[in-house]
Design a protein around this nucleic acid. Sequence first.
DNA 1: AACGGTTCTTAAGATAGCTTAAGATTTTTA
DNA 2: TAAAAATCTTAAGCTATCTTAAGAACCGTT
Lengths: 192, 192
Amino acid sequence: MEPKELLLKHLLETITLGPNDENCVLDSFTELKLQKKEVLLFAGDVSSHMRFIAKGCLRAYYMDEAAKEHVVQFGVEGWWVNDLYSYLTQTPAKQFVQALEPSIILQIHRDALRDLYNKVPAMERFYRLKFENAYVALQDRTINAMSKSAEERYLEFRTKYRGIEQRVPQYMIASYLGMTPEFLSALRKNLR
Amino acid sequence: MEPKELLLKHLLETITLGPNDENCVLDSFTELKLQKKEVLLFAGDVSSHMRFIAKGCLRAYYMDEAAKEHVVQFGVEGWWVNDLYSYLTQTPAKQFVQALEPSIILQIHRDALRDLYNKVPAMERFYRLKFENAYVALQDRTINAMSKSAEERYLEFRTKYRGIEQRVPQYMIASYLGMTPEFLSALRKNLR
DNA sequence: AACGGTTCTTAAGATAGCTTAAGATTTTTA
DNA sequence: TAAAAATCTTAAGCTATCTTAAGAACCGTT
């Protein structure tokens, strides 16, 4: 399916759009192709787009003081990726966003989105709902991170992100789950 | 200040409301007084209100399989408390919401809020922005939970929630930070 | 087919954080 | 104001997870 078709389908799962609206919305997005390993957003830059993954797989991660990477989020087709903090506050991003596979992104500029909110109120609703859901999912993750063991976190990840486990290196999953790759490796061995 | 004045002031920090809107909005909220320890939402019930704290201090917490409490959130004047998952999905709450001090709440029913979104679009904007901010704050917390030591987490809590530390028992703070009360106690001793 | 890079595994020793249990302190209630 | 309840501290031993270091397996490229 065409990238913009995918986006439209994605939007229509949450809101309804009149035929005029559809064009107005889709025209606000631009397409972007990424190679494997290509970085879409650098820490230090200000994120000024909301980004929809039409194809491929990406991760958001940051580097701590010791230059160690911490994966914050994975995303595949149908997900959105960004350093939302940077985007929402227009301050330099703390996170990198990087393609883990050749990928196709549809992005909309902040200013264009602000216009769109006024032209097509359903889009404001779309993002309100999106943030509600994102919040709830993140709260779940936070609770898990704080109260569950490494093994429990891994098992939960496996069932929740079944597709993703096969597509990204294991050491990035360990990082996402807040444990060392060695420990994840040992833990997996124990499960068998 | 009167509870509804406080709420209005709170809303006007984010959006603008016409004089008609103001009444329309405030009339949609109802006031609720809580004694210390009184429970506002029980796990198992469905949350059907968004709740603004006009006065007092509350916590949201859940109980795990071993009947151990985990504090998910604190709230004081000017904050909102809820089991958002339950509210948004209309499923039984996993969390309790309980007053830690005598408190005054302003709450709006889900149905009333839906009407309000249509009557006063600025309110839809208000909640979109609220969820954006909530998401960003939570992401920060998640990253901290996963990549920082207990001591770092505690120090960050202290600076970020200065007011709250004095108002709630230390063992609840330990729970919020994902550590045992004994460990927090020992950690605090080491800081001196 | 072989090389360099990337990813995964294994294992030993170190440490942060947990458990348990008991006593000390503070707050609430009678 | 004394008793009861709630909260906080201390300390010893234990466990989960990390660190380091090395080698094995699996790429993708020439």
